[in-house]
């Protein structure tokens, strides 16, 4: 009999499931890929076969035109792979369509979280705790300084600033997949029903969210409107556009950015952000450590982010853990 868990192999370019000859979130094209969610660093184009939730496949199709070889799996559904490996997709609460993947083989259970959070999010179903032997977790915000405040506080900060400057607009930099739609949905939940203006790069993804039943209220394109139309309104753009010439068409914008990194003052300053909004789609330190406790796996593998600190926490709490050195995961935009 093979050694326990020898069938699952962390490699620099992804996690390889040997008996099934497939990869999870590979950072280069492979024959068969299991993809946790649609962010570019996890979902790359060019695979022979891509197994993911229908929402993730729709996102990948929008980005890479990858209808070929798409195999949809619903949340809670199990598919049988080669070599006696079962894969079950479970909500991860990160963005629309995001899933953890539970792999079962020879009576052994491994969960790969992809990216996840434990907070409520109107755009996707919440993370579910899945008992397992090996828990492979992300660690983007794996330092005790990261504690994301309640999102209501951040929305109030944003709306207060908007109200104080009726002649200006607030330009919110937010990652185009997930963060932007969540911020808009949360603004609606906070009672903000004014039209929200979008950078052109955000439109298609917002429409895709709406097609999947996420209500984003009235959205308008910046390109279709004059400076004066946008006074006193919120404009959402990708982080890269914040300090771009593009923003010159806006009425004296107050620069805001929605990201977990905004917890650190100097990070906000590096991006010339005047109004930092601490909003993240990743688990903060409290959520990461709580999840490790709740999942209570025999062993924890830490993929990307601040793995040193989470590893240390596991040591201090007598939990077995190791850090995997995966390449190609980029966490700067969250």
């Amino acid at each position: 009999m093979a050694a326990p868990f020898s069938w699952i192999k962390p490699e620099p370019h992804g996690i390889y499931v040997e008996p099934a000859d497939c990869w999870i979130d590979p950072s280069r094209p492979v024959d068969k890929a299991l993809v946790t969610h649609g962010h570019a660093d996890h979902a790359r184009g060019g695979h022979g076969e891509t197994i993911a939730t229908p929402e993730t496949l729709a996102i990948m199709d929008l980005r890479y035109n990858t209808r070929e070889g798409a195999v949809p799996v619903e949340y809670g559904e199990t598919i049988r792979l080669k070599g006696g490996v079962d894969a079950t997709y479970v909500p991860a609460g990160h963005v629309l369509g995001s899933a953890q993947i539970l792999l079962e083989h020879a009576g052994e259970r491994v969960v790969v979280t992809g990216d996840y959070k434990r907070r409520e999010d109107p755009t996707c179903p919440p993370f579910e705790v899945v008992p397992c032997d090996i828990f492979i977790t992300e660690a983007t915000f794996g330092l005790p300084v990261f504690c994301h405040p309640p999102i209501e506080e951040e929305m109030a900060k944003l709306l207060d600033r908007l109200a104080a400057h009726p002649d200006r607009c607030v330009l919110v930099g937010a990652y185009a997949l997930g963060k932007a739609q969540r911020v808009i949905a949360e603004l609606r939940r906070a009672g903000h029903h004014q039209p929200i203006y979008l950078h052109g790069a955000m439109e298609k993804m917002c429409r895709l969210y709406e097609e999947h039943g996420v209500d984003l209220g009235e959205l308008r394109l910046v390109a279709d409107h004059s400076k004066d139309d946008m006074r006193g309104h919120i404009v959402v753009c990708p982080p890269s556009a914040l300090n771009d010439r593009w923003s010159r068409r806006l009425p004296d914008p107050i620069t805001a950015m929605a990201s977990g990194w905004m917890r650190i003052r100097q990070r906000a300053r590096q991006r010339n952000v005047e109004l930092p909004l601490v909003i993240s789609d990743h688990a903060d330190w409290g959520e990461l450590t709580r999840t490790i406790r709740e999942v209570d796996a025999h062993e924890n593998w830490i993929t990307h982010g601040r793995e040193d600190a989470l590893l240390r926490w596991c040591q201090l709490h007598q939990r077995r853990a190791r850090a995997l050195a995966l390449v190609g995961y980029d966490d700067e935009d969250d």
């Binding site: 330092l143 005790p144 300084v145 504690c147 917890r263 650190i264 003052r265 100097q266 601040r306 040193d308 600190a309 240390r312 926490w313």
Partner: peptide
Amino acid sequence: VLWTLSRDFVGDTAETASLL
């Protein structure tokens, strides 16, 4: 150890302490 890792990442002793 967690203090040192946090301090290195934040880059400022006062800010790290205020957060922790």
